[in-house]
Amino acid sequence: MKLVRPLFILTILLSLAAGLFAFQFGGFRRQQYYYGGANVPSEFYWSRLQYTSSYANGGFRGYSQSWARDFPKADNDCLIVLRRLTRINSPSPLNVVDLNSDHIFDYPWIYAVDVNTWTFTDEEAKRLHDYLYKGGFLMVDDFHGTDDWEHFMAGMRQVIPDRPVEDLQDADEIYHVFYNIDEKFQIPSEVYVNTGRTYEKDGYVPKWRAIRNEHGRIMVAICANMHLGDAWEWADSPEYPEKFSGLAFRIVLNYITYAMTH
């Protein structure tokens, strides 16, 4: 029993040392993040939607929850590409938009992931509904298979009960607004590196879908059965195929340009 206290302290110290080493030399080493820090006035803010996950009891929506998957590296890589390849003014750090706040209306573009877990209060559903109909654009990503789709749509129908979901065609303007994207394929998560599988669960076929308003403007761009976030996040990994990251970057630049022109 005399050794319990020293062993406990030693364990804590070793854990802290390992954590510090991992932080300094781990997967994110020498990466500069446009995350946190002072705001820089921008035309475009890369904004990720913060929502409550269905498995988060009591409404917990911290940074370990579903909405924050791949954050901040995926978003960060995207912002770098956006600044490099477009004339969109976007010097601000990454931005997180809480669906609980009316400040969502300050950012007409938002990105959401793992949306099969999202849940909304009536107030949140109305806020997102108004946001979309007033001109906002929502891109959703990273959910797979039949069950995920059903859960995603349960939330979506709470927001937009009456607009159909449609499959986007290759000729649709959103695939030609910045790059001409004539060929699309399933973009897998980083699981592909070890398994060679491009799908997860029963989401064998990628679904490029959208919900439009009454004028035909896309309000919600849906990337189902794929994971663009991982393709951005692992774009600098030698094991992750470039073709997936390349398409993922082209897709998101087109979606952003579309949101800013339609």
Partner: peptide
């Protein structure tokens, strides 16, 4: 440059059938 004002001006004019906006936007 792509910017929100452009999008929302175009959207406002969608309801006006007598005025058409022909636009060129330097995206890159």
């Amino acid at each position: 440059e792509p910017r929100w004002e452009y999008k929302f001006i175009r959207e406002a004019e969608e309801d006006d059938r007598m005025v058409q906006i022909v636009s060129m936007d330097r995206t890159s």
